[in-house]
């Protein structure tokens, strides 16, 4: 007796293609597109999806989670400052107290739980796809994203004839980390001015990252380290707590906007 049921190669192919076509049909027009599947993007995605908002996360790598898999020094202990450990409670991530107000947990545990929470909440994921450009509507409002398969970017110039596709949405969230890819694209088009580097280093500016999370242009919300780049905040080391809380705030801002529109 074989272990697995028989199925033809063609059935496997058809299953993949038909589901993908159905997915893409849904992605073509959704409520919120989140560019970047790191901690702030996933957090925002999960919170929105739990409120029945249709969310698509576009991730350029094949894996989700960004830098959330590993902590400092390539060691996989993640530190979280109060009150962000409450998010870990919600996600069912176990953690230990290092000292008052500072908690630690294995990166793979926290990251996989966050990814799973986002998927279970109903978030759609398009991985191995890269953000290419914004879709603009009246008064330069951001109303979608142009994306392409990540490997296309690696093709020689003479065969980059693989055209991208445009996905429409009511909102875009830039959760692309320090690169702030979507915001930079608006800057290229002369629609926004991002301060250059050279900001001072400080011990702590995580409050500012969370507090500045929100709209930076009509139709565009920034979360996570992209906030730091967009507003030229003082630089600091990575703090995962502020990424999670920034994602949550981004979701709140987006939800209020969408509710107001209805």
């Amino acid at each position: 007796m074989p272990i697995f049921e028989k199925s033809s190669e063609s059935s496997v192919t058809r299953a993949i293609i038909s589901q993908f076509a159905k997915d893409m049909d849904g992605f073509a027009d959704t409520d919120v597109i989140i560019i970047g599947g790191g901690p702030s993007g996933l957090m925002a995605a999960r919170d929105l999806a739990l409120k029945k908002v249709r969310v698509l996360v576009v991730e350029r790598n094949n894996y989700l989670g960004g830098g959330f898999w590993i902590g400092g020094f390539l060691m996989n202990t993640i530190t979280i400052r109060a009150p962000a450990q409450k998010v870990l409670d919600e996600l069912g991530v176990k953690y230990k107290m290092y000292e008052k107000g500072l908690y630690m947990t294995p990166g793979p545990l926290a990251c996989s739980k966050l990814i799973s929470a986002a998927c279970e909440a109903g978030v759609s994921i398009l991985n191995m796809a890269s953000f290419d450009d914004v879709v603009l509507r009246e008064k330069n409002r951001v109303a979608g994203a142009v994306v392409n398969w990540t490997p296309v970017g690696a093709l020689p110039r003479n065969i980059t004839c693989v055209d991208p596709v445009a996905l429409e949405s009511k909102l875009i969230i830039d959760a692309t980390g320090h690169e702030a890819t979507v915001v930079r694209k608006l800057e290229e088009r002369g629609l926004i001015k991002v301060p250059g580097f050279g900001a001072m280093w400080v011990e702590k500016s995580e409050d500012a990252v969370v507090e500045h999370t929100g709209f930076c242009h009509p139709g565009l919300i920034v979360t996570g380290m992209a906030v730091s780049t967009t507003f030229g905040l003082p630089r600091m080391g990575p703090t995962f707590g502020s990424m999670l809380l920034s994602g949550r705030r981004g979701a709140d801002v987006a939800y209020k906007y969408l509710k107001g529109k209805k």
């Binding site: 400092g72 020094f73 530190t79 290092y98 000292e99 500072l102 080391g237 990575p238």
Partner: peptide, 13 residues
């Protein structure tokens, strides 16, 4: 030195 090695919050603490 720690930051160049990519040390995280825990080592800085």
């Amino acid at each position: 030195k720690l930051e160049l090695q990519g040390a995280g919050e825990l080592r800085i603490e």
